[in-house]
């Protein structure tokens, strides 16, 4: 009984993260599917979608890869990786207009 309760308690945050990942993915899909990326808001919404992807990546790193419980430089290794292509993509899309 104690073991079962421990398992259920342990899984709740990851299940919540999973559901959040699904919702953020559906939002990304909706932005593309309903062709919201046209006109003068294309850049803003593109960068918003990129931002959602970076948040999703950090959730994977923290909760699925287990980095949330790590201290020191390894704690931020996925965040650092996300910021590098994220920044470069942002610069390229902004310059492209």
């Amino acid at each position: 009984m104690n073991t079962v309760m421990k398992t259920q308690t342990a899984m709740r945050p990851c299940t919540r993260v999973y559901l959040l990942l699904v919702v953020l993915t559906l939002v990304t899909f909706a932005v593309g599917y309903f062709d919201l990326l046209s006109g003068n808001r294309a850049l803003f919404l593109s960068l918003l979608v990129l931002g959602l992807a970076l948040i999703k990546g950090q959730l994977i790193g923290d909760f699925f890869m287990g980095l949330k419980g790590v201290r020191g430089p390894w704690r931020f290794v996925i965040l650092l990786w996300l910021l590098i292509p994220g920044t470069l993509i942002t610069i390229a899309f902004t310059l492209a207009g």
Partner: peptide
Amino acid sequence: GGVYWHMVDLVWLILFPLVYVMR
């Protein structure tokens, strides 16, 4: 094995909006 699989997922999470959605 698990962290490798999560890495595969992580990469796709960037690839999906970049190639299929962002314009």
